[in-house]
Amino acid sequence: MSLGQLLCNHTDELVQRWYARWLRERPPIPDLNEATLKDHLPLQLRVIGEALREDDSSRPPARELWRQPERLDPEKRALDEVRIAEVVREYAFLVEEVRIWLNERGEQFSFQDYSYFSLAIFELTAESARRYALFRSEQVARERAEYVAGITHQLRTPVAALNLAVQQLERGKGAPNARILERLRRTVGRLARLVDGLMRLERFKPDELPIHPESLAPAHIIDQIVADYEHEASTKGLRLDVSANRSARILVDRDLLVDALGNLIQNAIKYTARGFVRVTMEEQKDGVVFKVEDSGPGISPERQRELFRPVSPGQPGGVGLGLSIASRAAAAQGGSLELESEPGRGSTFLLRLPWAVRKRE
């Protein structure tokens, strides 16, 4: 029997044998399910087998076997988070297992046939790597576009408020209105903090962020942040509640605390159509917990799993971007950011921080 015929007739046996080998080798992705792992392997073995059964003169070059989309699907593997190094490893196992299987059967084939099989697997691996890289680059481009859209959306609100305040100043006569000047000052500060937060997000990993702790009254910080968003909340008819011990003090980085709380409060107001947004601080033995609760629509379990991905450019609208900034600000100071939410029952974000964080340059 020819090598091509053997590959076609014993595809399932070879795939199962290869899968057993993969399990023995302590796979780097132990939770990868069997169906995802095997993927298109049976089809690929049959394609090679069919090509080998043809005459030498009619054989296509091995590299052309994998140009048809239905014979290879590295895009799905990328979505399943299968690294290309794992794909290369899988095909190396396949070549070894086929060789061992043929030796056990005592089958003898021409050097040309076996070389064709090896070349086909090599080309399959190369084409997988090429298409995987192309897919990932396109995926990164899409995510970057969404990321930029998120930044634009985050900047739009303070810029609009800044523009409105400037127009009011231009229309005024005599000395500028103190209320308008105060709103202008807060808006400029809010815009500056947002830009600083974005720069920190782009430049540093959480464990690399510079930390400059200072003794702060968290209640005062909360008041300042809430004041920045009072106008938006009142426009929507939302009730803003704050509860914090006025005498409490913590040793944290002011900018990172504002990064975290500011984004949580902004998101709560943005996505709550009616009802309330409540900010509270709880003192615990090992640190403090800031809670930002809202009466908004809540967040589905599926969406919750996406919110805290390590690299999340954010959807247009800015939720993912704001939470990325908040999550990094918490992690950098040895804290954490958690979420409790059910669809239709609002959301509660919990920012946990130690009483004192260490300085880091």
Rank of each mutant, 00 (worst) to 15 (best):
L3R: 08
L3M: 14
C8P: 00
T11P: 02
W22E: 00
L23V: 08
R24G: 14
E25P: 00
N33R: 13
E34M: 12
T36M: 13
T36R: 13
K38H: 05
L43N: 09
Q44W: 07
Q44M: 15
R46K: 13
I48Y: 06
D55H: 10
R59P: 05
P60V: 13
R63C: 14
R63N: 13
P69K: 12
L72S: 09
D73E: 10
D73V: 06
L79D: 12
V95R: 14
R105F: 10
Q108P: 00
S110D: 13
F111Q: 15
Y114T: 15
S115I: 06
L119M: 15
A120M: 15
A120P: 12
T125H: 08
R130S: 14
A133C: 11
L134G: 12
A141C: 10
Q154I: 06
A165Y: 04
P176R: 08
P176V: 08
P176D: 07
N177V: 09
N177K: 07
R179F: 07
I180V: 15
R183V: 11
R185G: 07
G189P: 03
M199A: 15
R200A: 10
R200I: 06
R200P: 02
E202C: 08
F204P: 11
P206I: 09
L209G: 04
L209C: 11
P213H: 01
S215T: 09
H220P: 00
I222P: 01
I225E: 07
D228Y: 03
H231C: 10
L238H: 08
L240S: 05
A244W: 01
N245V: 09
S247M: 06
A248C: 06
L251T: 05
L256I: 01
V258S: 05
N263A: 09
N263G: 03
E283I: 07
E283N: 04
D286T: 07
V288L: 02
V289D: 02
V292T: 03
E293Y: 04
P297G: 10
I299E: 01
R305W: 00
F308N: 02
P310S: 04
G314K: 02
P316E: 06
G317Q: 05
L323A: 01
L323V: 00
A326L: 12
A331M: 11
P343S: 12
R345I: 01
S347Q: 06
F349C: 04
L350S: 07
R352W: 01
W355G: 00
A356Q: 11
A356R: 14
R358F: 04
K359A: 15
